[in-house]
Amino acid sequence: MCLAAASVRAATVELFAPRPFGYFLGDLITLEAVVTLDPGFRLEPGSLPRPRPVTYWLDLRRAELADLPQVNGARRYRLTLTYQTFYAPLETRGLDIPAVPLTARDGDHVLNLTVPAWSFASSPLRSLIAGGGANPMALQPDIAPRPHPLRTDLRRAGGAAALSLACALGLAGLRGWGPFGRRRPPFSAAARDMRRMLAAPPAAEAYSKALLRLHRAFDAAAGRRLLADDVPDFLAAAPHLATAADTIARFFHASRVAFFGQGPDAAMAEMAPEALLSLARRLAVAERKGAVRPAAAPAAREATA
C-alpha cells in the first residue's frame, strides 16, 4: 500500500505548450503532454479525450497517443492534443483550455491523472475602430492565378495541327478536292505521255501502249469505258471534240485492228504514229478550248431546240 502510494507520486504528466499569446480566430493550438506512469500501469484507452467541441469557442480536432520508450519498466506516452480556437475577442484576452482527465489502471488499482489546464492570450484580428478611409471589410482583388508553364502543351498542339493539315492535304489530293480537283485534263496529259512513248522510232509495242494511253484519256473524258460504238453518243455530249470526229473514228478503227485484228503493225498502216500523236494534240487543244465553253452551252442548246 505504501509502495503503491509512492508509485502514485511517481506518475507525472508533463505539458509542453507553445507560446501562450498571439492567437487569432481559427488558429490551431497543439499541446503535447508526456505521461509517465508507474511500472505496471497502463493508460485506459477509454479515458482518452475524443475529438469534439470542448466549449462553444473551442474544438478538440485531434487527440493522438504515441508510445515512448519505457524507463525502468514504467510506461511513457506522448499525448498530442490539437485544438482550434474560434474565439473572436474585441481586445486581447486570456482564455483557458480546460484540464483533461486521464485514467491509468493496473489490475484493480486505478490512477487518476490530469493534463493540466493551459492559458493563452487571444487577440482580435483588427482594431475595434476602423482607422483611415479604407473599409477593411471591402472585398480585396482576387489573387492573380499562378502562371502555368505552357511551352510543352503549345509544342504538342502545334505538332497535332501540322499533322492534321498534312492528313487533310493528303486526303484532298486523293479525293481531288479544291485545287487538287483541277488536275491536268485527260487529253493534254495523254498527249504529253504519248510524245514520250513515241519519241524513239516507234515499235509495235510502244504503238500499242500509246493507243492504250489515248483510250484511257477517252475513258477519263467520258467518265466510263468508251468503246468504239459509244463514240457518236460521246461526241454528241462533248461537241467541242466533234471537229476531230473522223480522226477519232480512224483511231478507234486502228485500235480494233491493233488489239483484236491483225495486230499493231497492220494498225500502224491504218494510222501512222505521227497521226496518232497529232490527234492527241488536237484533242488536247480542243479540250482546253472546250473547258471555257460549257457556260455558254445551254443557251446554244436552247437555240437549236
Binding site: H215, R216, R224, R225, S255, F259
Partner: peptide
Amino acid sequence: AFETVPAP
C-alpha cells in the same frame, strides 16, 4: 462491269 473493266 463494262464501265469499269478497261478495254482493250
